[in-house]
Amino acid sequence: MSATAPAPSTTTLTYREAVRLGLREELLRDEDVFLMGEEIGVFEGSYKVTAGLFREFGPIRVRETPISEEGFVGAGIGAAMMGLRPVVEIMTLNFILVAMDQVVNHAAKIRYMFGGEVGCPLVIRTPNGGGSQLTAQHSQSFEVFFAHTPGMKVVAPSTPADAHGLLKAAIRDDDPILVVENLQSYKVRGEVPNDPDHVVEIGKAAITREGGDITLVAHSFAATRALRVAERLKRDHGVNAEVVDLRSLRPLDVETVSKSIQKTNRALCVDEGWATYGISAEIAARIQRACFDDLDAPIERVGLAEVPMPYAKQLERAAIVNDDKIEAAALSVLGLGPDVFSY
């Protein structure tokens, strides 16, 4: 459940349907909004997110591109500088690397480098994540590269309602935003407000479960896992975990995270990506500054094993962040289980 209060009227949608609804509503609302990406038209999207939109809006508003990320991300940036509101789909986050120069050296720099004289209201949406034997080049979560970059905004919703509301907020925002979706999240179901103006404020985390014993900090599908683990901790160990879904990685809502840890005195950061130099490293650094006197245990982190994703099922299982690993880590932080963090 999202912290976004469900409006009187909601519909149960999958995450995928919620993104599609958000795109459709924004296409209907603003003629300057258009979609661009590989196979988003006739093919209806690699993950079927844009299904039906090409038929409804046609080839100008739903523009199919060749496999040419540097080219069409750059074209999105140029169109955004001219005042259009392009929503560019990258098939998966892995493929954005060939457009990295356009995103980091161009989109993120434009407003500042030109002294505020021109902006870049661009949205790039793309799924991250692994866990389906997609292996090393197709299972990565490096939203941190973009969250590292001033001038960018990065959001990573975990629920259908947030996927809907944050995408719409991103499309209406005046700066370049990476919207990180997730392959596992696409089938998650949840309530989405029946409100074409439902937007979720960028830069605000959500407390998705209240508790007083430990704070689990996560984003994207890891936040969904964290909620599941919190229920398990309650059932099996009588522990009340609080879950903070970051929702936004840049700007980062350090205030909400810190307030939670002020209450629980313990923190575990969960990130589907590699922990080293990762999102969880940033969170830990911020928490120790804001909550130094509150902490009853070291801040700990769970992330992907520090290897490229392997193929064989049991190796993949050993590498990825799963519920068991999060649970063991939480118990370790609570002093209720073996120390899993010794090097």
């Binding site: 140029g78 169109a79 392009p86 356009q102 161009h106």
Partner: peptide
């Protein structure tokens, strides 16, 4: 050049 193509796309 990709940006310029984007500006031409806007036109």
């Amino acid at each position: 050049l990709p940006l310029a193509v984007g500006a031409a796309l806007e036109i």
